[in-house]
Design a protein around this nucleic acid. Structure first.
Lengths: 351, 351
DNA sequence: TTGTACGCGTTATCAA
DNA sequence: TTGATAACGCGTACAA
C-alpha cells in the first residue's frame, strides 16, 4: 500500500522537447538583462533591495522572454509549492460543487492552486490521496473527509496544516462547518411546530457525520416534544433517485405525516416519492430539506429547507488554511456569519 | 500582466520545520536499506535491473520510513509533473461539476492530479491561469474556454498538449464535445413536430460558443420549417433566476407558445417564469432544455430535454489528453457514444 | 547488478 | 546594492 508512485517499466517519458524553444530560466533573464542570477531572484522575490534601474532591466527581460518561474525548482528550494489539496467526496453533488468553487476562487486570489480530489466517501481513496498530496508538497489540505484524526496526524508531524470543512476530523483540527446538530433540531422543530408527530427521515450517505449529527438533532428535538421515534432510512448513494426510493419505502411501511430529507437532494427525492404515491403536498405530506441548493426553490412544491451558507463556508475554509500557513499575513476567518436559517416555502404545512 | 508570480515583500515563508521529522528522502531509504541511491532510484522507476533481494530491502525501507518521492524534484529531473490543468467556467453549474468529477476520476486512475481552475468565462482569468499552469509544468491542459486558438499556441510551442472539452478552441486543438448545432436542431424540431411556430429562446451565458451553436441550429431548423424568427434573450449570468427573468421578459413582450432553454438551468427558469405568469404547463406553454442534469427530472412539469452524455465527455477528454501525453500507452478515446438524444417528459405538448 | 557523481532551476548566503 | 556559489531531492550516465 502507498506505493502507487512506483512507475512501471514504461513509466518514464524522457522525450526531450526541442531545446531551441526550451523555457527561459533565470539564467536567460540574467543574461538578457545584463545582470546576475542573484539580482533576478531578488526582483522575483522582492525580499532584498534592488536598484530601480536593475529592477526595470530585469522586468523588461522577463516580459521579453515570457519567462515563467519553474514551480518545481522553486518548491525544491523554498519548501513551498503554493498548492493546496482539497479532499471532497464528490463534485457532482451541488453542495460540494458550490463549496469547491468558493474555495478555489479565494485561494487563487492569493496565488494558490488547488489540487481537487474526489474521495467518493471512501477511506481508502482518502488515504491514497493524502499520500500523493504529501508527495506534491502541498502547503495545506482542506478536507471533508470520513478519515479520522489519526490518519491526519502524520500531516501534522510534517508541518502540513489541515482544515476540516463541513465535517469535523478530530479535536485538534480546525473545523469550518455549521452546527449540524442545531440544523437537525431546526428541521424537526419546524415540523413539530406545525403539529407533526409522525415523522420519517430519509437521506444519504449514511456514514457522513453531518448527516448523523442532523439525525441526532432531529431525535432530540422530537423526544423533547413527545413525538414518536422517527422512522429513519439512510442509504449509501447520495442522489435524488436513490433517496426517493428510500422515501417510497418509508411511505409504504408507516404512517408519517412529514418527511425530513437530511439534504435537499434527499428531500427532493422524498417529494417525488410522495407524488408517486398519489399524495398531495403539502396537504398529505410535508417535506423539509437541508442546504438550500439553488434547485430547491424550483421543485414543486417549492422546498422548505434549512439554509447553510455554502459559499461562505468555502471562503472561510480557504481563509482558515491561509491563516495557518501564514498567520502574519492572513487573519483567521470570521465565523459569525456561518449560521443556519429556515427558508419557509411551500412543501410544509400544518397537519 | 503575467507577472503575478512576483512575490511581495513578505512573500517568503522560510520557517524551517523541525529537521528531526523532515521528510525521508532517497538518501534515507538507501541508508536504511543498506543499498545506494542508484539502487533505490532504480526500484522506484523500474527501468533497470535490480536483484530481487535488493528490491525487497528497498521496498521495506520505503514502507518503514513512509517515504514519498518529492514531486518537485522528480519533475525537475524528468520534466513531467503528473499534473493536468483543467480550465472550467465554474464548478457550481451542474454540468461542469459533473464534467469535473468525471475528468478527475479518470485522470487520478492513471496517476495524474488535477489543477482545477475557475475561469468565470473571463478571458483575462483564462490567460492568468494558463500562465501559472505553464509555471506548474503541467503535462497537459483540458479546457472549456472562451480563449481563442492563438492564446493556446504558446502551449503548443512548449510541447504542452491541449484538449478542448464542451467547446472548440481552434482547428488544431482536439475537441471532445457533442454537436451543439445538431442539439439546437433537435430541440427546435421536437417543438416544431408538436406544431409550435412561435418559439422563444432564453439562455446564458451569451458568449458561450455551445450556446451560440445551439442557437444557430434552432434558427436553421425553424426557418426550414417555415416558422417565424425566434425571439431570443441571452444573458450573462448562467443560473436559474437570471434566466427566469429573461424568460419573463420574453413572455411579457411576445406571444410564444414554446420556450427553448439553451441549457436545463435556463429551461427551469423558463418553467418558473411560466408559472409566475399564471400559465399552465405544458398546455399554455411548452418548454424544452438541454443537458439532462439530474434535477431536470424533478421540476414540475418534468422537463423534456436533449441529453448530452456529461460524464462520458469528461472521461473521453481525460483519455484524449492521456493519449496525447503518451500515445504508446493510451489509445485515443472512442467518440461514438458522444451522441445526443431527446428525453421526452412532461414539459412539452402539442399546441 | 551496483555505486558514484553530476545537473535540473531556483533561492539563500556570503563576500565584495 | 551586487555577483558568485552552494544546496534542495531526484534520475541517470558511467564506472566498477
Amino acid at each position: 500500500m502507498g506505493l502507487g508512485f512506483l512507475r512501471g517499466k514504461e513509466g518514464n517519458r524522457v522525450t526531450k522537447p526541442d531545446p531551441k524553444l526550451r523555457k527561459a530560466g533565470v539564467k536567460d533573464v540574467a543574461r538578457l538583462s545584463g545582470t546576475s542570477l542573484g539580482t533576478v531572484s531578488r526582483v522575483l522575490n522582492g525580499n532584498a533591495s534592488v536598484s530601480a534601474e536593475a529592477r526595470a532591466k530585469v522586468e523588461d527581460a522577463i516580459a521579453e522572454l515570457g519567462y515563467q518561474p519553474h514551480a518545481g525548482a522553486r518548491q525544491m528550494r523554498s519548501g513551498s509549492s503554493r498548492l493546496i489539496g482539497i479532499l471532497l467526496p464528490s463534485l457532482d453533488v451541488p453542495f460540494f460543487g458550490i463549496l469547491a468553487q468558493a474555495l478555489e476562487q479565494r485561494l487563487f486570489a492569493e496565488g494558490y492552486h488547488c489540487l481537487i480530489c474526489n474521495t467518493a466517501e471512501s477511506e481508502a481513496n482518502e488515504m491514497r490521496y493524502v499520500s500523493t498530496l504529501i508527495g506534491q508538497q502541498v502547503d495545506g489540505i482542506i478536507a471533508a473527509a470520513v478519515l479520522s484524526a489519526e490518519h491526519f496526524a502524520r500531516l501534522d508531524g510534517m508541518g502540513i496544516p489541515v482544515v476540516a470543512v463541513d465535517r469535523t476530523i478530530g479535536p485538534d483540527v480546525t473545523t469550518i462547518a455549521v452546527d449540524h446538530y442545531a440544523g437537525g433540531r431546526l428541521m424537526a422543530e419546524h415540523l413539530l411546530a406545525l403539529g407533526h408527530r409522525q415523522i420519517g427521515v430519509v437521506g444519504a450517505p449514511e456514514q457522513s457525520s453531518p448527516v448523523q449529527e442532523r439525525l441526532r438533532g432531529i431525535r432530540d428535538a422530537m423526544s423533547e416534544h413527545g413525538a414518536e421515534e422517527p422512522v429513519v432510512a439512510l442509504g449509501e448513494e447520495h442522489n435524488i433517485e436513490a433517496c426517493g426510493a428510500l422515501a417510497a419505502r418509508v411511505l409504504d411501511t408507516c404512517a408519517v405525516t412529514a418527511l425530513i430529507g437530511t439534504t435537499d437532494l434527499a428531500a427532493i427525492g422524498a417529494i417525488h416519492a410522495g407524488h408517486a404515491q398519489g399524495l398531495t403536498l403539502p396537504k398529505d405530506l410535508s417535506v423539509i430539506g437541508f442546504d438550500n441548493i439553488p434547485q430547491s426553490a424550483y421543485v414543486f412544491p417549492r422546498l422548505t429547507t434549512v439554509e447553510q451558507p455554502m459559499a461562505a463556508l468555502g471562503k472561510a475554509a480557504a481563509e482558515a488554511i491561509l491563516n495557518q500557513i501564514a498567520p502574519e499575513r492572513f487573519d483567521a476567518p470570521d465565523l459569525d456569519r456561518l449560521s443556519l436559517s429556515v427558508v419557509e416555502r411551500d412543501s410544509t404545512a400544518p397537519v
